[in-house]
Design a protein around this nucleic acid. Structure first.
Lengths: 341, 341
DNA sequence: CTTCCGTGCTGAACCGGTTGTGCATCGTGA
DNA sequence: TCACGATGCACAACCGGTTCAGCACGGAAG
């Protein structure tokens, strides 16, 4: 009885066999009411918790979900997605006795795939949550070959035979464009994130659709990479245009804030001369000057729904339908009507 | 042979017993050279990876480390510590075949302790990394009672019988004070984070020590809670003082940025009228206006060292000495000499 | 030629659970 | 009164590894 108590310790203390203990706890077998209560009392007294390792060995389940998260080093701290997403996943998983095996990787795709392989082939997880989907993503087929359940965070372009939990990028972009158009802006530009990721592509298409829907001319799209540096460069490039836009939509708050700094340095006033919107919110956004107008998504909820979806698949549910999250434009101080000509 | 191959599949294919396979892989038993190579070849061909579950069951090890991370909801996304710290931990762990079982908890201490209990008593981890140590922390004794190795991130006040990996809060504060004193500031105030956390206390003491060392009078300390809101309130309170400070040290970048916004709203110019320093850096800090001067710590390294330390304890090493990280003041645009009177 | 030891491998027990099978015991209906 | 089904539990096999004890064989020493 040194160390953690085992099921044998409980069985011995309760004067029953270990199968009786197992049945009493799971409620699966046929166990008399007073025996069950005695066993539960003894288990509680000894502080016994079944070993997940042993349980997993016989059920060939690990009761753990894997999450691999890859970002370049300069983004890993700035990204306001990671922590709340994990928190949401966790909140849901822990109610169902699942654990989260996470792996954050600084670096590129090679390391990321290695991360998946490690978690999957070690038999450590029952399923995986995939973030940052790329246009044609090798992880999908990797996991399908391994027979590992997965859920895609963000809707992929390719058919994936699996569930996806996505925020509505199209709606986000549309709400940003509509807000700017309502203010009277006619020349709206975009500084995008990585076009290699599916939501980058989707946002770009949605941008052009939304402009067309409001009868506006096609806006300039400057490619970026989610870093502050690229946000500043995007602003710089747009300010040099002969036909300068009066509003810019940035892929995330970091880029937008860096862009606003660049504008300030060039003596361009936000929002008087140019309006700025970010497509991802950040807790710092309300506190910069001017406060940043951004499209806000409930990332905590996003995590919860992802967790619920992957667990449903693992448990064999058939209703692994796709889920779409709402997002909401939060108007703060960085948008205003365009300057009168 | 459906699903993942097991050690039995390998043994059968190689024409040996499963113990021979185990020995061949671990190099522990006495196995002939050509038998070993044949086994390894077959294992590679079948793509066999030993199940960590089964391995853990017999070795009573899980090859996993637990990390519980608790933050209030409004901070969980803003905190630039979490993601790079995990990334650093991961980078180190994965080289040694360990996995990271993380748990991010939105909420208070009760949920957090529950999180520890769940990971520890489920037998899921071999050791734990403790962050956000409080002055007298119940987790220490909890883990000690469970016989679970742990490493404290940040040096606790109480004696803990265990290793700690800390950044040097005292040095951080001192470098900030020295920088401001060098610029000529005489009245320096602090807006602190939570005093319940050990590094909050340590920073406050170091603040007073550093002021005294420079022959400056004791500075005002306004309590905060790491949120932007509290940063703005702190700035507000300090601006109302009859003998207004000329420089303020904030506990983190979010508070500092919110404080600068509040100053701007009141028509107080940073850094012309008042200088601002943050004790934790943030990737957004260079991009706000003015760019925020902050004390920077290599959080990735912090994570790596924590991982190395906890693994050393688990593997039975005796050299679990405390580690202290360097930090560095990054001077940007939010500090300047005080206004001439 | 026997004894002895080292080498190379096998068989079996074990880690801590889950689950199928089977044996008493008891109550019920014919 | 006896057959029969339901109930309550024990026994044992199994999940996939690790590891200990032991057996067969070969070469070297006596």
């Amino acid at each position: 009885m040194q160390g953690r108590p085992t099921i044998n310790d409980v069985a011995q203390a309760a004067g029953v066999s270990k199968s009786a203990v197992s049945y009493a706890l799971s409620g699966r077998g046929r166990i008399g009411a007073e025996t069950r209560e005695r066993v539960l009392a003894v288990a509680a007294e000894l502080g016994w918790q079944p070993s997940q390792q042993a349980r997993g060995l016989s059920s060939s389940r690990t009761y753990a979900i894997g999450l691999v998260f890859a970002r370049p080093a300069e983004l890993i701290g700035a990204d306001p997605f990671f922590a709340p997403f994990i928190a949401g996943v966790e909140a849901e998983l822990s109610h169902h006795k699942y654990a989260l095996l996470s792996q954050v990787i600084v670096g590129g795709e090679a390391e990321e795939e290695e991360g998946y392989r490690r978690l999957a082939s070690g038999g450590r997880v029952d399923g995986m949550i995939l973030t940052d989907l790329r246009d044609i993503d090798p992880r999908i087929s990797l996991l399908r070959d391994l027979g590992m359940p997965y859920v895609a965070v963000g809707r992929p372009m390719q058919a994936i035979d699996g569930p996806a939990v996505s925020n509505d990028d199209s709606a986000s972009v549309t709400s940003a464009v509509d807000h700017l158009a309502d203010l009277g802006h006619q020349r709206i530009a975009q500084v995008s994130g990585s076009r290699a990721l599916v939501h980058g592509l989707e946002r770009e298409r949605a941008f052009h659709r939304a402009l067309a829907a409001r009868g506006l001319y096609a806006g300039t799209v400057i490619p970026g990479d989610f870093t502050g540096q690229s946000g500043a460069e995007g602003m710089c490039a747009l300010l040099e245009l002969s036909h300068r836009p009066t509003a810019i939509i940035f892929a995330n708050a970091l880029m937008a804030i860096a862009g606003m700094q660049e504008a300030a340095r060039q003596g361009v006033s936000v929002p008087a001369d140019i309006s700025v919107v970010a497509l991802d919110d950040n807790p710092i956004a309300p506190f910069v000057t001017p406060a940043l107008t951004a499209v806000h998504t409930d990332v905590l909820l996003w995590g919860s729904l992802s967790a619920r979806t992957i667990m449903a698949w693992i448990e064999g549910a058939s209703d692994t339908a796709d889920v779409t999250l709402p997002s909401e434009l939060v108007v703060r101080g960085s948008t205003a009507p365009p300057p009168s000509p």
